[in-house]
Design a protein around this nucleic acid. Structure first.
Length: 236
DNA sequence: TCATTAAATTGTT
DNA sequence: AACAATTTAATGA
């Protein structure tokens, strides 16, 4: 295993199409955007590769341009607990970047992904200069708080169909993950890793949800038909 | 561009 | 966990 905590030694500038996927860029003024674009870098992460690890000092604020990442942490018993998946359009680590501390979780690529990074110094410069950026970060923190509260409920649920439904609803969150849109590119195996169920059970749950009309199962991905139903199914 | 082959993903047991 | 069926990606003419 490599000592580097990020694959960012292979970084390169972003092309225009990749810049388009970054939701907060359009909230900045021209000079602010210029500064951000000058600093932004992108890299390929192969499946299984770590973007950042627990305990490493914060160097970048990260965002998913393409692919799928997994956020997890190791507990005292040495077991890995998965918090959430991070699909395209998602930016994470702002809490840690704010405090310039160390990463409190591992971020690992579930499959070959493109990950963009903004240096933590530029992150702070934007916080000091851009109201639009501050709004974005505040909104982001608030939305994620709601997501983690929902995640606690998911953990308590014993019904696998509901677990899958709620986890999917999180991944389809248009505020946190604006790059996802109608179709989420995720295999049933990847979803199984995130939810903590077997692939067979996930397949069964997806079939049930499809029969209810809230999603459609496609090869290599899922299409959301009724996000509200995913969020509230099983509440009566 | 098309046909063939390999790889990935899904559905089922 | 293993298997067959299906879909996509890769290859090369």
């Amino acid at each position: 295993m490599v000592l580097d905590s990020t694959p960012f030694h292979r970084r390169r500038p972003l092309n225009p199409a990749e810049l388009e996927t970054i939701p907060w860029l359009k909230l900045l003024s021209a000079p602010e955007r210029q500064r951000a674009v000058d600093d932004l870098k992108i890299t390929d992460a192969s499946a299984g590769e770590f973007i950042c690890r627990t305990g490493r000092p914060v160097t970048y604020w990260f965002g998913v341009v393409d692919g799928l990442l997994k956020m997890s942490a190791d507990n005292a018993e040495g077991q890995t607990m998965t918090f959430t998946g991070v699909p395209p359009g998602g930016w994470f680590g702002e809490g840690t970047a704010l405090k310039r501390e160390v990463y409190r979780y591992n971020i690992q690529a579930l499959r070959k992904s493109n990950v963009a990074g903004l240096h933590v110094d530029t992150f702070h410069w934007l916080l000091d200069h851009s109201i639009g950026f501050n709004r974005f970060v505040m909104n982001q923190l608030n939305e994620r708080l709601g997501q983690f509260i929902a995640a606690r409920e998911i953990d308590r649920m014993n019904n696998p169909d509901l677990r899958v439904a709620r986890s999917l609803a999180s991944l389809f969150n248009p505020v946190l993950y604006p790059g996802v849109g109608e179709v989420l590119r995720i295999t049933q195996q990847e979803l199984a890793y995130l939810v903590g169920l077997s692939r067979q059970r996930v397949n069964e749950a997806l079939t049930t949800l499809a029969a209810q009309g809230s999603i459609r199962v496609e090869y290599g991905g899922l299409r959301v038909l009724d996000l509200a139903a995913l969020r509230s199914s099983g509440l009566g």
